[in-house]
Design a binder for these strands. Sequence first.
DNA 1: GATCCACGGGAATACACGGATG
DNA 2: CATCCGTGTATTCCCGTGGATC
Length: 390
Amino acid sequence: MNLDERIRHRRGQGDGQQLVRDYSALSPVSHLDEPSGRGPVMERLLDHLEPIFDGQLPPNGYLHGPFGSGKSAVVTSLFDHLEQFSSGTRSIIHTSTRPASPTTPGFVYVDLRGTTSEFAFYHDVLDALVDESVPHHGISTGEIRDRLHDILGLSRAGVVIGVDHVDEPNTFDAESLVDLFAGLPSNVTWLAVGRVPPNRTALTEYTATSIPVQRYQRQMLVDVVMTRVSEGLARQALDHELARRIADWAEGNAHDALAALFTAADHARRAGKNHIDSSDVSDALGEIPLPSVSLGRVLQLPANKQTVLRELVDLDPVDCESVTATTEGISESHSVDLSAATVKRYLYEMAELGIVERVQSQSTSKGRPPSRVELRFPPTVFRRLYDLRE
DNA sequence: GATCCACGGGAATACACGGATG
DNA sequence: CATCCGTGTATTCCCGTGGATC
């Protein structure tokens, strides 16, 4: 059953049109093939990458801008198209039996959020470059690196690696990235993507170009929202005026705006409406924490941590007055078969990452005062995306 | 047999408070 | 008054173990 069918199924027999046609089209973590409103950034990236059209490698680059400004959307879309273009104009790198070497650089996109070890990084790059799938086990990091050297040794033009989400909590920082690339042959360059301004990261010591991305202007963000409405919702599902309200609230952050749209749509759907009204939007804006952490980070956590979060979002806030109480509430659920000690440690770890937040409660006379656990991500969106996943 | 990495579990450490002590 | 101490919690830290896969 695909997504549309499931939704129809849950809703029962359709009387008229469904409000939500496709949740994934509303998701802040999915990107459109052609992101709206980011044309100028795309142009600057193409300027930077210009050498590839002569079969040369571009220098290292750094794309930077605030949360929700469309960096990932632009880079994933661009790398997709470039890889298609590139593989169309060169002989194949995939099999080592071919003596001919590519004349146009290849393109590999790596999201560091899901790639947190040295092994995983080299693995992902190699996996993108060869046809056969690369094993995750029973092969050493060194072996993977050797194979990469073999493969890239055959390539005259080399490879550009887009490295997204540099220097977030739990991802590689500038220095580690430099180290990782030191393990690769010299015909590899990077396009790093991150939020840290260029004057505050060691990355720019190694990059020729820094390309800034500004937050979305109001009207652009309204367009972003309305585009998603037409992709994922019924016709006329969202008034232009409400889209403006969402955009104003989100202050240029497309992630937050789309989370709000998603949440409002879910509220309306559950109430059996065929359009989103003002109260749905109010409810949505009320339940999304600001500042929010990216859902992309939440959905890239190890499966068991997500299971813990899935229980957490359904827990009554009354039961979250301390980490210990929250742990008990989660452990009681039978869908979590982790020990209480582990659940508790997860909560602390996720607080460390900013996924949840510990807020000190008023001190009870005895012992160290506990801290309340609060969400730092949009719960409705997470709940829905988690449940819809296979 | 090798390899990577998530898990588990608890030990070690930090903190808050009230009361005792110098 | 300043400091120390004991008690009860909260929080952090560490490392061996085992599953999964080749």
